[in-house]
């Protein structure tokens, strides 16, 4: 249940953005969750609802998009699409990678009313 930590961090970002934009209310938020974060969308929705009560984002629609994995082989430099349970480099058959995409959670857009 790290969804609560994520929701809390997200609301802190939203608070800052709302202040910068002098927004009165936030109505929609889109976040992209890398598969490696193993975010359970329903849990994040619930956590967001709970954490946003009494904030400018109360009642906002949260759109969650899951994003895939990209890895770079540390041995041969090949960049490839990995799966959550498979990081084998197609070129040299080792599983020693840097994660290029799919580990982060990114706030992509905010719809607000001023």
């Amino acid at each position: 249940m790290h969804e609560m930590s994520i929701a809390t961090a997200l609301l802190e970002q939203l608070r800052r953005i709302a202040a910068e934009q002098q927004a009165a209310r936030i109505v929609e938020v889109e976040v992209h969750c890398g598969v490696m974060q193993q975010v359970v969308p329903e849990s994040l929705q619930l956590a967001f609802e709970a954490a946003s009560t009494d904030t400018l984002a109360a009642g906002a629609r949260l759109k969650i998009v899951e994003t895939g994995l990209a890895a770079r082989c540390r041995s041969c430099g090949e960049q490839f699409e990995a799966a959550i349970d498979n990081y084998l480099c197609p070129r040299c058959r080792t599983a020693d990678v840097e994660i290029v995409a799919g580990r982060d959670i990114v706030l992509r857009s905010v719809v607000c009313e001023v």
């Binding site: 953005i17 934009q21 990114v106 706030l107 992509r108 905010v110 719809v111 607000c112 009313e113």
Partner: peptide, 8 residues
């Protein structure tokens, strides 16, 4: 108003 952000 929609604001595009790319922020972790």
């Amino acid at each position: 108003m929609k604001i595009n952000v790319v922020e972790s």
